[in-house]
Simulated assay, not measured.
Amino acid sequence: MTLHKEGRKILFFSLIIFVGIYFLVDYLTDAPEWVNNSVLGILVVVYFLILQFFRNPSFKIVKNDKHVLAPADGKVVVIEDAEETEYFKEKRKQISIFMSPVNVHVNRSPIAGVVKFCKYHAGKYLVAWHPKSSTENERTTIVVEKPDGVQVLFRQIAGAVARRIKWYVNEGDAVDQGAEFGFIKFGSRVDVFLPLDAKINVNIGDKTKGGRTILAELS
């Protein structure tokens, strides 16, 4: 298990702040011992919660040109035919994955191909499961085209807590299936838009693993 690069500064400064808080409580106040121990316990628990959020597990990615892999760990909250208004401007099959603060927040490319479109949008911070979060929240839209011309759109969406969307690809970049393309700090959501004839392999409420769960199969 390794730590993601996005967490290094946060973990470093959090450690300094937490040590400072404990020093203030333990050495500069007359608080009883049980208070000092309670503060220490709370700080340790909070620090380990932050630590686990930035974990970046290693695993083997099974690549398949016909498969669409989950872009993130989380829970499937939407499966529907929806109008995609930014890029395709037509109906597509939409699958949305909600990422809670306890999920791994590395985002991975569902397919292999070339990035045909990449755009960042500033926006609101509605809760990630809000219906309008896909179009009104801070978000990044990425479209990857396979060698056979099939395109898949995936969108990183910030939530009420997540306000740090990171993406590492640009238009024209080649990406491998399951390769990391971004990261969202704390709770958030990822939408995937597929061709209407895609065979969906998940159901509402299913748990997904980024780069491992097969969301759908393409024709």
Rank of each mutant, 00 (worst) to 15 (best):
P71Y: 03
A158E: 04
K132M: 08
I204H: 15
L51K: 08
F53N: 03
I97G: 00
S133L: 10
T141F: 03
K146I: 01
L215Q: 06
N64L: 09
F23Q: 11
G7H: 02
T85S: 10
L51W: 12
K93V: 03
D30I: 04
P195G: 12
V152Q: 03
Y120L: 04
G7L: 01
G211N: 07
I214Q: 02
Y168Q: 06
D197M: 08
R164Y: 05
L49V: 10
K91F: 05
L196A: 07
V68Q: 01
Q151E: 15
K93S: 05
G205K: 10
V152A: 03
F183T: 00
R212V: 14
R92S: 09
G187K: 09
L40T: 05
Y87L: 10
F48C: 04
S14A: 11
F59I: 06
Y87T: 12
D197F: 03
T85V: 07
C118M: 07
F88V: 03
K60R: 15
L218C: 04
P110R: 10
R189L: 09
G7A: 01
F13V: 05
V62D: 13
N36T: 12
T2I: 05
D197E: 13
Q94F: 02
I97A: 01
F98Q: 12
S100E: 12
A198C: 05
V143W: 00
I95N: 06
T140M: 07
V190Y: 10
V202P: 06
L40R: 15
K199F: 04
F183P: 04
V25Y: 14
H121M: 00
